[in-house]
Design a protein around this nucleic acid. Sequence first.
DNA 1: ATTATCTATAGATCTATAGATAATGC
DNA 2: ATTATCTATAGATCTATAGATAATGC
Lengths: 222, 222
Amino acid sequence: MTAESHARKRDAAATKAALLDAAEQLFAERGFDRTTVRDIASRAGANQALLFRYFGSKEALFEAVMTRGGFAQLEATPPEHLFAEALRSLLLDDSERRDRSLETYLRSTGTDGAGAALRDQLGEEYARALASLTDEPDAALRADLALAWLLGIGLVRAVTRKDPLASASPEDVARLTGPAVRTLLERSEQAEPGVRNATPAAAAPPGAPPAGPTPARSASGS
Amino acid sequence: MTAESHARKRDAAATKAALLDAAEQLFAERGFDRTTVRDIASRAGANQALLFRYFGSKEALFEAVMTRGGFAQLEATPPEHLFAEALRSLLLDDSERRDRSLETYLRSTGTDGAGAALRDQLGEEYARALASLTDEPDAALRADLALAWLLGIGLVRAVTRKDPLASASPEDVARLTGPAVRTLLERSEQAEPGVRNATPAAAAPPGAPPAGPTPARSASGS
DNA sequence: ATTATCTATAGATCTATAGATAATGC
DNA sequence: ATTATCTATAGATCTATAGATAATGC
């Protein structure tokens, strides 16, 4: 009944931007599948038909969202700070994040179409940056494992909200993950020198006797 | 037109079991949302209406799937082998896995209803077992981070299929993650003694100057 | 007059149910 | 006769489109 109950201000550019903003938030919060075009239009304060007028399809809108920000954080962060910075970003509150591409990545794991290619590209670029941090063999695999850890922390934190990780401070998480990530990226194939002090026999792979974790080539010489 | 084109063998118990098996597979492969009751019935070779007759609803079937196996791997594995064994299980081919609960967990992150409670319970029990491996402070948080790594590796491997991780051997993954997980669980709050040899300045958290990863207290003495 | 916005609805799913059909057990 | 199985469909979404309405610019 109010005068402006419909017919917003007639600014196509602003409406497009509002739809992109709303879609970016919702895709990050719920993933592609669980976000409906009506949710997006509603949060943008726009009519649902405009989404199709301006973007063509829900999938094209997803693509526009992923390309717009352009992996801002990845490009702005030097590789040696990328892990810690991405981690920090994942642990911030929803409102104060700038780049939500990693979140969108891990919430849209079922997406198959156009978004999948962009999602995969994002993964490739993060992994490439992380791989540049190590000269060890298996650099690419080590980088994938670091990326996997980032995504897993985001998963447990944002999706499952499991405590204590869900409410841990970014500093505590960084303090505990930092040394382990360095071990992952820097440790070469030798028996570890000064780490076997605390627990008796943690995490020995039981199904891998021929190619175990500390192979035959010993620490001294090749 | 064939004689047995419909009307299967009339064995309610077998049909229920077939529905449970098919649901277990599909929920693990696609998650709860992306699996339809018709998919499940089709793979089970059963009529779709029987799913509702025997389980009541799709959500109740999900609950039945999660409770049936009863976290078999978690219960059968001593904590010190849990990480490596769960990792190994995640890296096997789809067909040769026994316990797919972790996969279902990470693919059903959007599920809100009855399945969410079971999903969360699974996470709690894995984390508790992993936390028993360390006497360090923050044991529960360290365990959550280890669980997050498991889930992240499963995510990158099974969902995104990103190479080289997607095609890496379980042995290689265990060899690279083992030392890092030991660092995560065993390393106490001091500068690391013999690891800073390879890369110049990897993974320094830029936003945490007061409580950085290698704090003021140096390696020599307390 | 142009075109951004809105209404109404087609068409495709998907979960769930009601009631018909047909295979087994007494 | 009992009951496992199947057919048909209701009812609720969800994406997408066609065409009406109304706000701006010349």
